[in-house]
């Protein structure tokens, strides 16, 4: 499951950040410059970073100016690729504005499908309380509320639901053929990343679609999905294929 969480975390993120300008600028100029940073940006990871410091590009989908006091503080909402440095962004905005700027405060408000208002946000004290209740009072009800099934992380990934009879062969590395598909989520195309789920909603793994969703629905045979990463362990579902003689 840690592997799948990696996929979620490598999707887009959303931040609210406070940028401190070193000299005031007209608000129209600030808006103009923010607009320039939407799209592809070049960033070199900072000295203190946990990744290789090579120049790389990241996409910024949207920068919204939430507030500007007309003096030194601007509050921005930034929707961007994972791995975009907000600190660098603020610094670069300052350079283009010609007055200099740096990041004062940062809060991530969304990672992949998990936004602040998804109702899933847990505080450290909630977790501590849940563990106390479990260990001292013998009830796992709170623990089951603060921990959620990892399956929720594939919310935004198009889903292919697999019939019971095809699950175990997928887990053994086979491709998913059309007759093994129970259902598809509408909208994906050939080559898109899809999440493979059982009819119970258990995550089998991730794969690449070999046909668009509607073709899977209409076809009788052919390969529907090539597995990319399988996380379900073997032996959960029964084998449904025949052993070859000899």
């Amino acid at each position: 499951m840690t592997r799948i969480i990696g996929t979620v975390m490598h999707s887009t993120k959303e931040y609210v950040c406070v940028m401190q300008l070193h000299r005031p600028v007209p608000q129209e100029r600030l808006l103009e410059v923010l607009k320039m940073f939407e799209g592809e940006v070049y960033q070199r990871p900072p000295l203190r970073s946990s990744v290789k410091r090579a120049l790389r590009t990241r996409r910024i989908y949207r920068i919204e100016l939430l507030e500007y006091d007309g003096e030194r503080y601007a509050v921005l909402r930034v929707d961007c690729d994972a791995g975009t440095y907000m600190r660098k962004l603020c610094w670069d905005i300052g350079l283009i504005l010609g007055v200099g700027a740096h990041m004062r405060e940062l809060r991530r408000i969304r990672t992949g499908p998990f936004s602040e208002d998804s109702g899933l946000l847990v505080r450290m004290q909630d977790l501590a309380e849940a563990i106390y209740r479990w260990k001292e009072e013998g009830s796992d009800d709170l623990l089951r509320r603060v921990i959620v099934p990892g399956e929720l992380s594939v919310c935004h990934i198009p889903k292919v639901i697999v019939r019971d009879t095809a699950v175990e062969s997928l887990v053994h590395g086979a491709q998913l053929a059309v007759p093994g598909v129970a259902a598809v989520e509408e909208g994906f195309g050939k080559g898109d990343l899809v999440a493979l789920l059982t009819l119970k909603g258990e995550l089998i793994g991730l794969g690449r679609a070999e046909m668009p969703w509607n073709e899977i629905l209409e076809s009788k045979r052919g390969i529907a999905v090539k597995p990319a990463r399988i996380i379900m362990e073997r032996g959960v579902y029964p084998r449904a294929w025949k052993k070859k003689e000899g």
Partner: peptide, 8 residues
């Protein structure tokens, strides 16, 4: 083991 926490 198959769970996650969205931690603040």
């Amino acid at each position: 083991n198959y769970g996650l926490i969205v931690l603040d």
